[in-house]
């Protein structure tokens, strides 16, 4: 958008209150820019919710997450469990009659929640992502046995899935030894670039 043309899509929700919550006037734009989507396109038909495999476990359904963004409800959108329960299967994006990629919006919300240190109601899921990425950061590859062990330490759920792990081990399907990349510096450079301060890496 060049400076001299008025931005017709700009909206100012600063005087809006929804259910007692003041709208965050910048939230809508931020999500749009970070996700590369235009959330205004969503006309709330509900097709995303209808086809979502994990909607049953979400507190706000997919179309409602989109609605929260449309109304600038940052706090709810970033603290709901839905953004962590979205499994990224792209069913919604594939069938959306307005070609909105809700998965990209979910990603953007997750990214914002992480960067703003909003505690996820889905602690295990959040822990999983953290453990997963820190393992990649260290060795460049995901080591399944290591990941499972680290996750158990982080979540404190030490006994969960132990029989399954043993069975896998017995079947020769858990490799006890990690197999890291050789050029670890290259991987670390990627992580370094990703964490350039003061940015949350929006799309154009």
């Amino acid at each position: 958008m060049s400076d001299d043309t008025p931005d017709k899509t700009a909206n100012d929700l600063s005087n809006l209150t929804v259910g007692g919550h003041r709208s965050d006037p910048e939230f809508f734009e931020r999500v749009n820019s970070l996700s590369g989507q235009n959330v205004s396109l969503c006309y709330q038909c509900g097709e995303c919710t209808a086809g979502c495999p994990t909607a049953f476990a979400m507190d706000f359904k997919p179309n409602q997450v989109s609605r929260l963004v449309q109304l600038g409800m940052a706090e709810e959108a970033l603290s709901c469990n839905s953004i962590w329960i979205c499994v990224g299967c792209e069913t919604c994006a594939t069938r959306c009659p307005k070609n909105v990629d809700l998965c990209a919006i979910m990603d953007a919300l997750r990214q914002m929640a992480s960067k703003r240190h909003v505690k996820s109601p889905e602690t295990d899921v959040q822990s999983f992502h953290e453990v997963f990425l820190s393992s990649i950061r260290k060795s460049g590859r995901m080591h399944e046995a290591g990941l499972i062990a680290a996750l158990k330490l982080k979540t404190g759920k030490l006994t969960k899935d132990i029989p399954l792990g043993l069975a896998l081990l017995k079947k020769g399907r858990l490799n006890p030894l990690p197999d890291p990349v050789k050029d670890k510096a290259a991987v670390q450079a990627i992580f370094g670039e990703a964490q350039t301060p003061g940015e949350d890496n929006g799309r154009q």
Binding site: Q111, G140, E193
Partner: peptide, 25 residues
């Protein structure tokens, strides 16, 4: 040679650049 993890769902839910740069390497 020396391939690395694609970042899976953890990367694209965490950072846009990470989700593109890990596969891109």
């Amino acid at each position: 040679p020396d391939w690395n993890c694609c970042g899976a769902s953890s990367a694209h839910g965490t950072d846009n650049l990470l989700s593109a740069a890990l596969p891109a390497r």
